[in-house]
Design a protein around this nucleic acid. Sequence first.
RNA 1: GGGCGCGUAGCUCAGUCCGGAGAGAGCAUCGGACUUCUAAUCCGACGGUCGAGGGUUCAAAUCCCUCCGCGCCCGCCA
Length: 575
Amino acid sequence: MLTELRRQVGDALAEALDEAGYDADPDLEDPPEGVDADIASPVAFKLSGDPTAIADELASAVSLDDRPLIGWVGTQGPYLNFRASELYFERVLGSATDDGYPTLPEKDETIVLEHTSANPTGPLHIGRARNPVIGDSLARVMRAAGYDVTVEYYVNDMGRQVATITWALDEFDEDDVADLDGRDKGDHDVVRYYRRANEVLEGEEGEEYAERAEREIDELLQALEDGEEGALEHVGETVDRCLEGQLESLERLGASYDGFVRESGYVLDGTVDGVASRLKADSRSYEEDDAYALDLTDWGIDKELVFVRADGTSLYTTRDIAYHIDKFERSDRAVDVLGEDHKLQARQLAAALDALGYDRDPESVFYSFVSLPEGQMSTREGNVVNLDDLLDEAVDRARAEIEKRADDRDRDVDEVEETARAVGIGAVRYDIVARQPQKSITFRWDEALNFDGQHAPYVQYVGARASGIGQKTDAKPADPSDAVAELEAPEERALIRKIGELSAVVEDSADELAPHRLATYSRELAERFNEFYRDCPVMNADEDTKRARLALVTASRVAIERSLGLIGVETPEAM
RNA sequence: GGGCGCGUAGCUCAGUCCGGAGAGAGCAUCGGACUUCUAAUCCGACGGUCGAGGGUUCAAAUCCCUCCGCGCCCGCCA
């Protein structure tokens, strides 16, 4: 609802500026805490003259006709302040229980959002987990913001890594690799072969063996590139085995996909060859030692882009160009969630697409790496914290927390387990999504599993409290207009205001590709609810107040559930 | 070496894009609140030259420059 209020204030102020003969944008902002206003503007500073006098002039020029959400306009020194009307509060309270709240109007824009797209070489570790958590949250936020979003996972079934791992599965037996780590999943299974293969390739078992391995892997890669059916099918089996295990973990995290796009598809149908020949025709591309590269100095990039190897096979980026052309044809926008190590590659991709005549750029969200206190994680080295282990620990910890509470409530085993899952997984997701993607993270178990304050369980707890209040009465919540008239306490007003912000947060978050704003918002919302909860008893209040507060509790509960839901965190009924 | 990113309280982070009204939280520490709607909570105290220095501006954590520290990249890997 704040989006509508903002629009009315913006229009009103723009009109006033125009009438007063000033040429400036309304320049809206949130007033600081302690100022009794909902929206403010420092625009008077920007105009020549005495800012305080100009502010007064503008305030009296503002017309509130046909702008029923604005209740008051005034000044404080050079600042213009606007307050919301009672109608605004009623609308907030009423809209919170609408279907799909806070879905914004349709944007009529299609987006292909690609995220995770992990190499199928082993289990996902906690660093990789930033990708699906950010990506899935972004998908939910952008859908709520009115975009038509298709989420895709790009399956790498063509590259050297998958060839290596396939070779290793042929080369070695169960006896030749490390024992399974106790998880009977495809991703945990095949990584053991991958590690063994890398040991061989690094020459740990002799130069001769390393050379033979490399030769055989090259042959397999060549066969893939040539579209040999047997080779594709063989590698495909390896990829599926690993992918199945990875997807099980992603599903547990709550990330879902609309489609899986295989790299091999673009090689088989000839589009990769087409991309290569079109790039070769570009005057900036050149041949060197039988390989082909595109000079990128025109785009300010020092590093050339090699797009065909000396042996004629394609590279990841070449295939990625084909994929992005396909995305461009299928959508209005292409958004990619990528690790920061892909930054250069993303610029090269954009440059190549430009060279090929596409005037659009893919949009990228980059996240920084997660390291351990002792240093970088590496799947190849094996010094990683697996996502599966983190999720298990989180759920165990949540279960222990539930069980340690003295319980006069009856709770069956399924309910405890379901709540432990929602809280544990929610805590992990929230911990990841709450931080700006570009900030690097040092992973520490005690911090990741800390459930006190500023984390998902804090917000979820508020949701559970709100649920509890509604369940204990037959009294019906009041209608919004009756409720608002009754709800005059500062804590009540602050809570309604905060609920009203959700639509604006969704819009900003989608515009900025910044889902962490939802996490910040959900926490602020929970804080406002706790202040209300502390000072405004519901059940003991007189009948009218009780019904009014019940309406507010219901709206709060929905807002909590929706804001957490947009970052993929569930809200249990009870905790 | 070059490119990109990050640096805000002892620790973990919001705020930075788009400059505005005494820099905000949580954790930790100290002190309070469960016969009262869920104490995974709440209230209070303590804690800051917003990495350093310059500049622009009526106004800078926010914009510009220089420097320092850390991370990522600079593969015919992905």
